Computed example of a mutant assay.
Amino acid sequence: MLRLFPAVTAAVLIGPVVAGLAGVALPAFGYFPALGGTALTLDAWRALLEAPGIWRSAWLSLWVALATSAISLGIVLGFVAGWSGSRLFSVLHRLLSPLLSVPHAAAAFGLAFLIAPSGWIMRLLSPGRRAWTARRTC
């Protein structure tokens, strides 16, 4: 029984990723029944590649991403080289270590669940405690 746990764990973790990829890839290739696309085609890709300025836009995005990453790395390396070994650097190192151990996506999801309309903050300030009412725009 214990031998099945790795396979079940992998299936539980990989299953939603595969479903999400299929949900993105199928419409990209024309299969989106809700909009009438019931066959796989390359029409969307052809339209994308024929769009005026797409290659310049893609190149500019790549260049800006690489340049800003290089500039950020340079600033951080300069800071670390200049302040390494000092008392201030050791204090900052101690204070920032817990923050750097939290994955960014996990922190973002936690914050989203905290401030969402059904999150903890809104539950604390719920209509039972305040005079708030839900409005529907449907």
Rank of each mutant, 00 (worst) to 15 (best):
R3M: 08
P6F: 09
P6H: 09
A7I: 10
T9A: 15
A10V: 11
A10L: 14
L13M: 14
G15T: 02
V18P: 01
A19K: 01
A22L: 15
A22W: 13
V24K: 02
A25K: 04
P27A: 04
P27D: 05
P27M: 03
P27N: 02
A28N: 07
Y31G: 05
F32N: 11
A34H: 03
G37Q: 07
L40E: 04
D43W: 00
R46V: 13
L48F: 14
L48A: 15
L49Q: 02
I54M: 12
I54P: 01
S57P: 02
L60D: 13
S61Q: 10
V64Q: 09
A65M: 04
L66M: 02
A67H: 01
S69T: 14
S69D: 10
A70N: 06
S72P: 02
I75S: 00
V76E: 08
F79I: 02
F79Y: 02
G82V: 07
G85A: 00
S86V: 00
R87K: 04
L88A: 15
F89A: 15
V91W: 09
R94V: 08
S97G: 04
S97H: 07
P98F: 08
L100D: 07
S101F: 10
V102N: 06
V102L: 14
A105M: 10
A106P: 03
A107C: 06
F109S: 12
A116W: 13
P117D: 07
S118T: 14
M122P: 03
M122A: 10
M122G: 04
R123W: 11
L124R: 10
L125F: 15
L125C: 09
